[in-house]
Design a protein around this nucleic acid. Structure first.
Lengths: 217, 217
DNA sequence: TAGATTGTTAATCGATTAACAATC
DNA sequence: TAGATTGTTAATCGATTAACAATC
């Protein structure tokens, strides 16, 4: 189990989940070797980028054969923590929060949502899937007791930062921000933004002004 | 109604929805002027970036006062198409597709989901909110008849590209891709990727290796 | 006027791509 | 061996930041 020497750059980190997903598919179909050219083709990158990326985490290939699929898969899984279970809580029991809790996909990928919280008293105790909505007062204690390291912010935009502050204070180390707000956190906490409406709006801009085949996100 | 001279770069486009959201908040609270410094502070940018961005779409401020909120809001709304209604369909009536259809937020932001499709016969006719799941056979006709310009791909990864092909063939101009797959489309079609699991995995990497306060997305 | 904030140019930074010797 | 594919260095590209004259 090799620990990472240097930190990976944000652009490399962004590609890791896609490498992982694609390589997992190869592995499941029994493919044993893959070249940087094939990976690039399938993920919409250049082979240069792929080789540079793998160099970043010191995964070596073999000239004329490429990269060993099983080793690569293990390496990627370790780097993105796909080989462990993450206990996650959701804050906000609105439309979005409820959908997240009931979305089976997450637990299959190792993200187990074990609690949901809301500021609205009327929702306390309401069942969502197998969880009951809890009061915000219980959040701090729950995070500590249940060893929660990640929280999903699914509240109205205006409440985003204050919820983030609560989560950080409770000891959470990673925040998935689904609000439009810009979330400020200490240096030892990570934030990843995931805003579906923003993606739709980028898209509508591109449709209106026909940006030539432009990706975003 | 000024049409955009040159195309905006991807990084500028990515910031537009956040400018819009924040400026809308200012407008709603009756604020009339805003400086690049304030915008930068609130959105986690530098004032240089803000001024550069606004120059891109030729929105002029006034020295010592800043930018007029109402004019800026109108400009941004026009650029991201927030001043119109978009008719959208969802492909995939699994967990995710159902959640999207029932998520009230979208229609409030101008994205009206008017159809949901699935390849599984067992789901035909099933009600989701006020929509009924339709057969894929009907997709082409529906897109043309209902003037659909955007589609959301919420199917298993392995079906992503073939669904994209169907949508493009039907005439859809923008795709929101929620699968892990890399989607290839012609130049006159836009794709925006939105992958929650990928965001969670970027986050878990950062938590494991404590990337110093690194955003992604 | 004096001071603040703009629009714009130039400098920096980081990420991507190209090129190629090494090597299997 | 000959040919393909790697790891790595150098070149390019694009995005961000710094700096500052113009101006309200």
């Amino acid at each position: 189990v090799s620990s990472l020497k240097k930190n990976l750059s944000p652009s490399v980190v962004k590609r890791l989940p896609r490498y992982f997903s694609y390589v997992k598919g190869l592995h499941d179909s029994g493919v044993e070797w893959v070249s940087s050219a094939t990976l690039a083709e399938e993920l919409g990158l250049t082979s240069s980028t792929v080789r540079q990326d793998f160099t970043c985490f010191s995964f070596m290939g073999i000239a004329k054969r490429g990269y060993q699929v099983s080793g690569l898969l293990d390496m990627l899984a370790e780097i993105i923590g796909a080989d462990m279970e993450w206990r996650v809580i959701v804050v906000g029991a609105g439309n979005l929060g409820r959908a997240l809790v009931q979305h089976g996909e997450f637990v299959r990928r190792g993200f187990n949502i074990v609690g949901i919280f809301d500021a609205d008293e009327a929702k306390y105790g309401v069942k969502i899937g197998r969880l009951e909505v809890q009061s915000m007062d219980r959040l701090d204690d729950f995070v500590k007791r249940e060893d929660i390291r990640m929280g999903i912010i699914a509240v109205p935009d205006s409440a985003g930062q204050s919820v983030a502050d609560l989560l950080v204070k409770a000891g959470v180390k990673g925040l998935l921000n689904m609000t439009m707000a810009h979330i400020v956190v200490p240096d030892n906490v990570a934030v990843s933004d995931s805003r579906i409406v923003a993606s739709l709006q980028q898209l509508s801009h591109c449709v209106l002004f026909s940006c030539p085949h432009r990706r975003s996100k």
